[in-house]
């Protein structure tokens, strides 16, 4: 169970929040000029990396505000939380030693046998 530091309320238990999937997915407008592929990718395709992931959360049982979060999905560490209108932190500001798809970080993944 994570503790998530809501930028408006402070640290709260994960059970107060809902996850909103990948962040920084730009919504194209609904005009017909948008191609099927571009629109389809917006609607259906989301990244699901092992390692550093930019994702959205909403404090649904709290202030009901949306915000962004950088989380290492292989260890569950929350690396950065920032408001919706704040600049996205650069990927190289985080260390990410996971070799996807089957690599494991040395510490924190709990998956011992893969590491050996």
């Amino acid at each position: 169970m994570l503790i998530i530091d809501c930028p408006y309320c402070g640290p709260r238990d994960q059970s107060e929040f809902s996850n909103g999937g990948e962040a920084h997915v730009k919504r194209p407008d609904g005009s017909a000029e948008i191609g099927d592929r571009e629109w389809g990718e917006y609607v259906f395709i989301r990244a699901n990396p092992k390692g550093i992931f930019y994702e959205r959360w909403v404090h649904s049982h709290g202030c009901r505000k949306w915000f962004n979060c950088v989380r290492d999905t292989s260890t569950d560490e929350i690396l950065k939380i920032y408001k919706i209108d704040e600049e996205r932190p650069k990927l190289d500001s985080f260390k990410n030693n996971v070799k996807t798809p089957s690599g494991e970080p040395n510490l924190g993944s709990g998956n011992f046998t893969v590491k050996k």
Binding site: D29, G30, S31, D36, W39, V43
Partner: peptide
């Protein structure tokens, strides 16, 4: 209307 939720999807193949 230029846009609304799901508008573009109504002309998907």
């Amino acid at each position: 209307k230029k846009d609304f939720l799901g508008k573009r999807s109504l002309i998907r193949s």
